[in-house]
Design a protein around this nucleic acid. Structure first.
Lengths: 122, 122
DNA sequence: GCAAAGCATGGCTATTTTGCCAAATATGAA
DNA sequence: TTCATATTTGGCAAAATAGCCATGCTTTGC
């Protein structure tokens, strides 16, 4: 009855909780501001004020975004003095970000060459 | 001016298009039904009707979810005969799913042992 | 104690997402 | 052609999300 990552043992109705938790991670990463913050955190922990500067939104907005990431388990927070520092809590994320990043860079390059190279999209 | 996955060259304002595309991928994966379909596609391509059986929602709903995944570049579709077959288009996804899967399995186990083992949550 | 700085939360509105039904489209069979 | 099957799309209502302002909470400094 072990819960395996590839869910080999599950057929039509896999563990709902499992899927929901996993979807929560993706959903948390699925917003430009949150993804931007996560990308920034790859360089190391940052306080909320740093991330606010990065995003350029209201402090309350940034705080809510961070709450989403925290509740999904993507980041963790630690209070030191009057600041709260956020850090990545998902080690494998780095590899995946690199991978999707490469892919997207390719796509953007393709799109650019299609626009500039006189070729037609099918 | 190359667009690098880790965006070393970017400071306060990285390429918006890049971030938006990447967020789109995560957003697409951030819904239980869509994630469930993607998990199923790890075993190989499936037609929409297969996926409808899996999800148990209206065909139109399933079709819309697939459109989201397709537009994000997570899956690709191919028409053969009267069916349309969907397949994964993001090779690195498998590794990441395995990784987050392991993590979530741990979390669920922890939660279960906290509930059953008489320990208090802090 | 009081004020200020750093974050989080309540409350509100605008926007987006979801999911269903109905209708349109495309393909293969008769 | 006509019908049946497989899938997408239009349209709508309910639900969720995003972002702002104002307020509350906690820590530091005075």
């Amino acid at each position: 009855m072990a819960i395996l990552p590839n869910m080999n043992e599950v057929n039509a109705r896999p563990h709902r909780e499992y899927i929901a938790e996993q979807a929560k991670i993706f959903k948390a990463l699925g917003h430009p501001s949150r993804l931007l913050m996560v990308q920034a955190l790859r360089d190391g922990e940052k306080c909320v004020c740093d991330l606010q500067t990065l995003i350029g939104a209201d402090m309350s907005t940034v705080s809510r975004h961070l709450a989403v990431l925290r509740e999904a388990g993507v980041v963790r927070s630690e209070k030191r003095g009057t600041n709260i520092y956020y850090a990545l809590a998902l080690s494998c994320l780095d590899t995946f970000l690199h991978c999707t990043g490469t892919l997207i860079a390719e796509r953007i390059r393709e799109k650019a060459s299609l626009l500039g190279g006189g070729e037609r999209a099918s």
